[in-house]
Structure formats: structure tokens, C-alpha cells
């Protein structure tokens, strides 16, 4: 059961990620990214992280991707023109990707003592998670909420900037 679910959703994840690279229209890339994020939520659930699976669907596949599709449609982004990119990207970038992937894969495959996951492992409950979050890690949590407030203010200020200039120009 675990094997079937893992293969199904890992395959969906990889297919979505590859489709993101192949599509030339941004809206198609955004929809493939939603597929990747939703399949990742299922994988989180398989690893026993129920709260994160819900947060992944609500925050990532919901809020963040809605923001992305909204901006794609607002700016009316058309098909991208395929160019070869910079010479540095071709000469250094792609070999670097191969090196990064092979180094990480070698480290993972050589690592000793990595366990296994099965459906009978039990789930980290939201209660367990929030007990740590709201006692030991309360200060970082509050600081993050301030960070989000600042980010929202910054986003509004940045996005309104053009309007201010236009009215000032008139």
C-alpha cells in the first residue's frame, strides 16, 4: 500500500516538475507546480506529518499558487521566447547541476542507518506539534508573524509604487 502510494505520487511529483520545465506558457507551469505541491502533501502524510500535509495544501497549493496565477493573469504573461541563455549558464550551470545531484545522491546512498517508513508508523499529531511550537518556540513564532506583517506592508508599498509616480507625474 505504502509502495503503491509512494510510486504513484512520487511519479506525479516528478512528472509535474518536468512539465513545469517543458511548458512555455507560465499558466501551464503554475498548474504543474500545483500538481507537484499537492502530491508532496500526500508524501508528507505518508511520512506521518498530518499538520504539514494540510498546511501544504492550504498555504502552498492554495494561497501561494493563487498569488502566482493571479500575477500571471494580471500581467497577461504570454508565451516565453526560448533563447539559449547566457554562456555562463551553459558552461558552468548545467555541469554544476549534475555535480550537485551526483554528490547528494552519493551521500544519501552511502549513508548508514537510514530507517524505513511504513503506514503503521503512527502520525505526529497536531497537538504534539503545537505543544512544542507554543512553548519552546513561541518567540520565533511571534517573530515570524511580525515578519509576515512587514512583508505584506512591503508588498503593498512595492505594488502601489507605480500608481504614486503616475499621479505625481500628472
Amino acid at each position: 500500500m505504502h509502495l503503491i502510494l509512494f510510486v504513484l505520487f512520487a511519479g506525479l511529483c516528478l512528472a509535474g516538475a518536468i512539465n513545469l520545465l517543458l511548458q512555455s506558457h507560465p499558466i501551464n507551469s503554475a498548474l504543474s507546480l500545483i500538481v507537484v505541491m499537492t502530491s508532496l502533501a500526500v508524501l508528507y502524510l505518508l511520512l506521518g506529518a498530518e499538520f504539514l500535509a494540510a498546511a501544504q495544501v492550504i498555504v502552498y497549493a492554495g494561497a501561494i499558487m493563487v498569488l502566482f496565477t493571479f500575477v500571471v493573469m494580471l500581467l497577461n504573461a504570454g508565451r516565453e521566447e526560448r533563447t539559449l541563455g547566457s554562456r555562463a549558464a551553459r558552461a558552468v550551470g548545467f555541469p554544476a547541476v549534475v555535480v550537485i545531484l551526483s554528490v547528494i545522491a552519493t551521500v544519501i546512498l552511502k549513508a548508514q542507518g537510514l530507517g524505513t517508513a511504513s503506514l503503521s508508523d503512527g502520525i505526529t499529531s497536531t497537538e504534539e506539534l503545537s505543544a512544542v511550537l507554543f512553548t519552546k518556540l513561541l518567540l520565533p513564532f511571534e517573530v515570524t508573524s511580525v515578519l509576515i506583517l512587514i512583508a505584506i506592508l512591503g508588498a503593498v508599498a512595492l505594488a502601489r509604487h507605480g500608481d504614486g509616480e503616475r499621479t505625481a507625474g500628472k
Binding site: 505504502h2 509512494f6 512520487a10 546512498l109 537510514l114 530507517g115 524505513t116 517508513a117 511504513s118 503503521s120
Partner: peptide, 10 residues
């Protein structure tokens, strides 16, 4: 339910 997947795959 007991079927196991190595974490390496993840």
C-alpha cells in the same frame, strides 16, 4: 500496513 519503504527513496 507493515509494508516498508526505505527513507533513501524519499
Amino acid at each position: 500496513l507493515q509494508q516498508e519503504i526505505p527513507l533513501t527513496w524519499y
